[in-house]
Design a protein around this nucleic acid. Structure first.
Length: 444
DNA sequence: TCTGGGGTCCTAGGACCC
DNA sequence: TCTGGGGTCCTAGGACCC
């Protein structure tokens, strides 16, 4: 037996190795790729409506800007410290994500795209002694080919790979790579990292664990898994096994078919009248139809909701939702709009002399139990005219793909008005990589 | 009339994630 | 003035059935 094979057997996890690679401050890094002036300055990216900070570079974190912090609270801070602030540009980030994954696939054919900025790679076939070297090469290649800086965590299970990634990110001397399949690293780090950092341990679980005297990851690992199941469900039990090196979570190479789909948005201003609310809900239904058709899915019901804001403490509050059944499974925008409007009609309440209008802050449309359109049952009576609908929707989608979303919209969606309520993106950068008219310009 | 023990299915709500 | 959006999984409990 070769020395390498012997060494490998000594490692926990029976030789399996997963890498978790993620983009550092991913959205901010995407912005930096296209503007070199952002390189050393603090950068943040805001959520929809320019509401909260959802990505921060290390320079911004140092200034005390927290994840999810409302922008209006930190606007002055940003101004005085020269923080560059951007609206989110999901078209750009999605495309950059695809580019990084294309690089990952050069290093391992087995890649699970876990989120827009994180992927798991199967490194089981890479000799243990070479994994760190490979990870360093992977980081350098991604950086060179896409401009995105990353960190890599390696572990015998996905949970340990996530933990390793956290360690790699928090300690600059590790050169962005941490390998917990290495027994000495495993022993060293598990008692030095807080249990709160473990994937799947949130606030509620952490409180329960603290009551049991757990502080470090090692403390959590050493709990008896079966009693833990009582307080933390099978999820908690699984985490303990994963921390011990027994893989419970397989690599998901093929994304599971989605079960539900939602389009929900806060308004940039409050809405008090029915016509505007219906217009917003119709716009969300239009977007829902696009999402369903892109994945070949269909639904036979939609739930419409709208509500006032908790932040308007002195205003009367109202929150409603209504589910509308469709005659058959469909992804037809016109059918979805009709159902969405019906949902509003069923629940709308007018203001009266002794009751002012409610000030609605958010509305949405959602559905679950999605089925593939090709398999969906068709109603015998009252069915939609699919022979007309399918080519019509295909034509609408083709136009919008070519000339941009919103080029063709159903007239009955009422989307031709001013749309004062629609989501704000006041600091959005161009879609550099997906729109010819927005290509970056280089001067030579 | 009273007494019982399982099953399944569905839903709401909690928890967590990015 | 200004506080995101979109998912998944799990459990408890109710309804219903045999």
């Amino acid at each position: 037996m070769s020395g390498l094979a012997t060494r490998r057997r000594d490692r926990i996890g029976g030789g399996r190795a997963y890498a978790l690679i993620d983009g550092n401050s991913f959205y901010c890094s995407c912005e930096r790729v296209f503007d070199p002036k952002l390189a050393a300055v603090p950068v943040i990216v805001l959520s929809n409506n320019d509401g909260c900070a959802i990505a921060r570079t290390s320079e911004a974190k140092v200034l005390g800007i927290r994840m999810g912090e409302p922008y209006f609270k930190i606007r002055d801070l940003c101004r005085s410290h020269g923080v560059r602030v951007f609206s989110s540009n999901y078209t750009l980030y999605g495309d950059m994500s695809a580019r990084t994954n294309a690089v990952f696939r050069q290093f391992s054919p087995r890649v699970e795209v876990y989120s827009i900025d994180e992927s798991f790679l199967d490194l089981s076939d890479v000799a243990a002694a070479l994994r760190v070297e490979l990870a360093l090469d992977l980081r350098a290649t991604v950086r060179a080919w896409t401009g995105i800086p990353t960190c890599v965590g390696i572990g015998p299970t996905k949970t340990l790979a996530k933990l390793a990634n956290h360690i790699a990110k928090s300690l600059p001397d590790l050169s962005g790579v941490c390998d917990l399949t290495e027994p000495s690293a495993y022993d060293h780090w598990l008692c030095r990292v807080a249990a709160a950092e473990v994937w799947g341990i949130g606030r509620a679980s952490l409180a329960k664990l603290e009551a049991m005297g757990v502080e470090s990851v090692a403390d959590l690992r050493d709990l008896d898994p079966r009693p833990v199941r009582k307080g933390l469900t099978v999820v908690g039990e699984r985490i303990i096994h994963e921390l011990r090196g027994t893989a419970c979570l397989p690599l998901e190479l093929v994304p599971a078919r989605r079960k539900g789909c939602a389009v929900t948005r806060s308004f940039s201003t409050r809405i008090t009248d029915r016509a505007t609310l219906e217009e917003a809900v119709a716009a969300h239904a239009t977007r829902l139809g696009e999402k369903l058709r892109r994945e070949g899915l269909a639904t036979d019901h939609v739930t419409v909701f709208y509500h006032t804001s908790d932040h308007d403490r002195d205003d009367p509050q109202r929150s409603v939702s209504a589910t509308v059944t469709l005659p058959e499974h469909t992804s037809d925008t016109l059918a979805l709009i009709k159902a969405a409007r019906l949902g509003v009609a069923k629940t709308w309440r007018d203001a009266s002399p002794n009751r002012p209008s409610w000030r609605y802050s958010k509305a949405g449309i959602l559905t679950n139990d999605l089925v593939p359109l090709s398999h969906s049952p068709r109603a015998l009576i009252g069915r939609l005219d699919r022979e007309r609908s399918d080519p019509l929707m295909a034509a609408v989608d083709a136009c919008n793909a070519r000339w941009g979303r919103g080029t063709v919209v159903p007239a009955r969606a009422g989307l031709v008005g001013r749309r004062d309520w629609s989501t704000k993106f006041e600091m959005r950068t161009p879609r550099y990589t997906t729109q010819v008219s927005e290509l970056p310009v280089a001067m030579a």
